[in-house]
Design a binder for these strands. Structure first.
Lengths: 208, 208
DNA sequence: TAAAAAACATACTGATATGAATGTTTTTTT
DNA sequence: AAAAAAACATTCATATCAGTATGTTTTTTA
């Protein structure tokens, strides 16, 4: 590692520039969608030029893939997946409450208006762009897998009913969560989220 | 009415041309999304010219509104809302089965791949385009309203538990349905839909 | 310290977009 | 049948896009 110390400045600079562009792109994809966002728009906020963009990324699809891989995946993982890994062997039901209920209650107005970045991309370009599709599917797969582990663990600990289909339950919870975040986008108030919260609360309770 | 018979040819022609354009636009919005679809592309399949398009519709937004109002709303209504109106006083649970389970089982591969037209639009432009937002919200509101009526009717008839929150249940079912249709778009197989079906089946049963 | 390479900026190309302006044909009215 | 209007087609204006080519500056290497 020490051999490269004298080269590190440039690599760090490069990485920082890429992050700058990726962050700007993520914000715009989130606010206006992938197709509505142009490369001139992405670089506008960064103070960089189009030459700089195409030095670091070879195409628009390429920046899309980076945004999904680095930002979107990370967000879903940190917020929805990691808390369900349950490394300290906590009770299952409260964990599900945290992720599927408390998480939503803590959203900002902007996050409510704009929905879930992953779900937005899934719906906008999930089918048409195959490289995106695979990456987005991996995100969902991973999320589901961790939930299945958690629910199976809950069965063993006697906290989840034995006759619960864990794969099905996982997809159902994920679907309802992403679905309501989409539907919320066409409302300007919390009515829809409040109703979802009531229903998902009783659904989770009923798993025990 | 008879006074206008001699004028009807032109009005019918106009209406037919508009429908031709609207149908082409719907297909393309459904396949490629609203933002990816251009007016030249819309008219390409119809044999008409751009002048014809702008004679009948004043802008791209305008055709978007027409597509939502006439085609998208109609589809949701015919498939998901009308069957739940229960005009002939049928049992409630089988009705929910029909709409939220059998309906999905009968989808073509294309419908599975492309998701729900209404949900696609909600997620792509639900927040950014306010005229669209209001129309899409009306579709969901109507759907929810009919479901609430159905579930309340079910309570009276003793087919639905008294402690079921009907508004919350309606939004939960709608969210899960739209959510899974979105998530399915990034898969190439029926795994996700099959799992959803298992879960929603037991959820509906548990309402009784 | 000179050469090489990486990190940028500037200027351009070709394609395509929305929409308007204008011309032509068909239908309706008077 | 002539005039008016509706239903189209053609052409144009303006803007913006993704991506490229070619510069210039800064950093690294030798």
């Amino acid at each position: 590692m020490f051999f490269y110390i004298c080269h590190m400045n440039q690599k760090i600079k490069s990485r920082e520039t890429q992050n700058l562009i990726i962050n700007s792109a993520f914000e715009l994809f989130y606010k206006h969608g992938y197709n509505k966002t142009s490369i001139p728009e992405i670089i506008k906020g960064t103070g960089l030029s189009k030459g700089a963009f195409y030095h670091h990324f070879k195409s628009k699809r390429s920046i899309g893939e980076k945004v999904i891989d680095l930002t979107v995946r990370k967000r879903v993982y940190e917020r929805m997946v990691a808390p369900l890994k349950n490394l300290d062997n906590a009770p299952i039901i409260p964990l599900l409450y945290d992720v599927f209920i408390k998480r939503i209650e803590g959203y900002s107005d902007l996050e409510k208006d704009l929905g879930c970045p992953a779900n937005n991309l899934i719906n906008e370009i999930g089918y048409s762009e195959s490289s995106f599709r695979e990456m987005l599917r991996d995100i969902i797969d991973h999320w589901q897998e961790i939930m299945v582990n958690l629910l199976e663990q809950g069965k063993i600990k006697g906290e989840i009913r034995k006759n619960v289909d864990t794969s099905a339950t996982a997809i159902f919870l994920i679907s309802a969560f992403e679905g309501v975040r989409g539907i919320r986008k066409v409302y300007n108030n919390d009515k829809i989220l409040d109703e979802y919260l009531i229903a998902v609360k009783s659904y989770i309770e009923q798993l025990a």
